[in-house]
């Protein structure tokens, strides 16, 4: 056995497994894939995804990417639906605390690696940060053509007419593009790419972002990337330009009118309110506000 393949256990507190769980050979394979993904922005690179001790569909792709990028000096943040304390975010953060012993944080600006499901943090990211998305279905053409053999050809030929037709049919039927999340983007003017199911509200944040954006789909065994400072355009039409969601309300907890809001049902008589989906962003704003200030709104109307 050569030195490079000899298992070296320098794990975190949980002994018996390698650092960050994956063996070095698997990390090498994933690292090679990540580098190719960065070199071909938006192209889905097949990789030999491994079975992880967490279920498929629960972030195994993101976990494998994070495990291959993560080092002992990194500070990791994990969010699900924008929140640090949703059960699956807690579970994945604990997985890396146990297997890698790395520092974790809820502070967006402190994190060097952020693993996310369904959101991009509200605070702008910076160089030196890596955003790792968990991706359920990496193929944006899947709903038009379920066969990989076919969609692969369409990507090879940059044959995306069918996607535009589908979006245009939406406009014809509904007066608008009826896609509210996982809204397809074109990366660096070439590959049509699934932004993972983030709300389209977050799509503009992908454009020219200074951070490295990596996407891992474990069950589908694909990794793709958006390098920093890369053009990311949401598909649209001249007469129907891309628009993000807006709310009439502000966050009931911090008053933000700029963040993505979650609706919370407060009673069974139609009462509801809106709060930031990004819990860290919201907590920071609340902390900066005078303690005596009244809530911004108790219940809201409907979103538009």
């Amino acid at each position: 056995m050569s030195a490079a393949t000899a298992p070296v256990a320098t794990g975190g507190p949980e002994t018996g497994y390698n650092f960050a769980y994956l063996d070095e050979q698997t990390k090498r394979m994933i690292r090679r894939t990540i580098l190719k993904a960065v070199a071909i922005p938006g192209y889905q690179c097949p990789f030999g995804g491994r079975e992880m001790p967490l279920p498929y569909g629960w972030g195994t792709g993101g976990i494998q990417v994070t495990a291959s990028v993560l080092g002992a000096d990194d500070t990791l943040k994990v969010i699900d639906q924008g929140a640090d304390d949703t059960t699956n975010a807690v579970s994945i953060r604990r997985f890396f605390e146990r297997t890698a012993g790395v520092a974790t944080t809820e502070r967006t600006e402190e994190a060097t690696i952020i693993q996310t499901r369904h959101r991009i943090p509200e605070a702008p990211l910076r160089e030196g940060q890596v955003l790792v998305y968990q991706v359920p279905i990496p193929e944006p053409l899947r709903w038009l053509e379920p066969r990989e053999t076919e969609s692969r050809k369409m990507h090879a030929l940059a044959e995306y007419g069918a996607m535009h037709v589908r979006l245009y049919e939406d406009i014809a039927h509904h007066g608008q593009i009826a896609t509210a999340y996982d809204y397809p983007v074109k990366v660096n003017g070439r590959y049509v790419t699934a932004p993972s199911p983030i709300p389209k509200f977050d799509n503009p944040k992908m454009h020219m972002n200074p951070a490295i954006q990596l996407f891992g789909a474990g069950r589908e065994k694909r990794i793709y990337a958006i390098p920093p400072y890369t053009r990311v355009e949401s598909l649209d039409f001249e007469d129907h330009p891309f628009e993000v969601q807006r709310w009439d309300e502000v966050c009931a907890l911090c008053g933000s009118s700029e963040s993505y809001l979650d609706e919370v049902i407060t009673d069974d008589r139609g009462g509801h309110m809106f709060v930031c989906s990004d819990t860290y962003y919201c907590a920071e704003r609340q902390a900066a506000r005078p303690a005596a200030a009244a809530p911004w709104s108790e219940a809201g109307g409907s979103a538009k």
Partner: peptide
């Protein structure tokens, strides 16, 4: 798993 964000978008 929570899908609050996508559901809110819908």
């Amino acid at each position: 798993l929570p899908h609050y964000v996508d559901f809110q978008a819908e």
